[in-house]
């Protein structure tokens, strides 16, 4: 269980995160959304113990990640947006580094590499950016870490690889693992993330499961624009709009529309979900 209380972080006088409070439960795949510069990467690095909080606390299983205790680090994996390219074959890298994660599984690493169509015997410094990213995604999932923080994991992946990524995450993430995936490309991960966290400058606008979202909001894929819609957008063949859902009608969440609706009606949405 991860508990974030009144978290604050600033780079000098530039406040990035302020009074952020969140709980992340076990066995869920959280999608972390937000505009550029709201502090998504900063939040992930704070959770991974790479930065010290300016104020507030982060508690992961009763411990502060910045203490970087091996027993906690072996239950955490942080996959940054930009990954280093060691001068060695992927399999050798996985064998050498994986030994420090309690539940690392080398066979699983090889399997995921196959699913992601990447050669485990290729030297990592000779790989393309996408191949390198897929190698590190395979390594992340093979650690079987209880908490995985991924920053823009689908950046640099081609279209088939994005589908392979979704397949790999769905198949190889253990039930006890909690994933927090930050992304700008909401459509890439629409099928796998639940719950969704929307971060604003110095605030959490939304932290709700897909079930809670569809209970309170209705995603209409019709042809007529509703003037009372929280958000509407013309798309080929009709429109998509987000409206309040007093009747509890079922609908399929469109993450991009949800994100835009939340940004346009911050206080209204917060109030709606805090009830």
């Amino acid at each position: 269980m991860i508990t974030i209380k009144e978290l604050g972080f600033s780079y000098g006088s530039n406040v990035v995160l302020k009074d952020i409070s969140l709980n992340l439960e076990e066995g869920r795949i959280y999608g972390l959304l937000g505009e550029n510069g709201v502090g998504k990467t900063t939040l992930l690095t704070l959770l991974a113990g790479l930065k010290k909080t300016t104020s507030g606390t982060i508690d992961i299983d009763g411990r502060n990640p910045f203490d970087r205790q091996p027993s906690l680090l072996s239950n955490i994996y942080y996959l940054p947006d930009e990954v280093p390219a060691p001068r060695r074959a992927a399999i050798g890298f996985a064998r050498d580094n994986g030994q420090y994660w309690e539940k690392f599984d080398l066979t699983k690493f090889s399997e995921i590499m196959k699913v992601l169509d990447t050669d485990e015997n290729q030297r990592m410094d000779h790989m393309s950016y996408g191949q390198l990213k897929k190698t590190m995604i395979s390594f992340a999932l093979a650690t079987n870490a209880r908490y995985m923080f991924m920053d823009e994991p689908t950046n640099g992946l081609d279209i088939p690889s994005k589908a392979q990524f979704r397949k790999a995450v769905s198949k190889y993430t253990s039930d006890e693992s909690t994933l927090l995936i930050s992304t700008h490309q909401a459509r890439d991960l629409e099928a796998i993330i639940d719950p969704i966290i929307i971060l604003d400058r110095q605030d959490v606008l939304l932290n709700a499961s897909i079930g809670e979202i569809t209970e309170k909001l209705y995603f209409d894929y019709g042809t007529e624009i509703d003037p009372d819609a929280l958000y509407s957008e013309m798309v080929p063949g009709g429109c998509i709009q987000v409206t309040p859902n007093p009747s509890g009608a079922e609908s399929k969440v469109n993450i991009e529309a949800l994100f835009n609706a939340v940004l346009l009606h911050k206080s209204e949405i917060k109030e709606m979900f805090n009830k």
């Binding site: 680090l73 280093p84 580094n97």
Partner: peptide, 12 residues
């Protein structure tokens, strides 16, 4: 990039 990998490696 490389420093993050070094710091998050589960070694004291």
């Amino acid at each position: 990039k490389e420093g993050s990998a070094f710091l998050t490696l589960p070694v004291s």
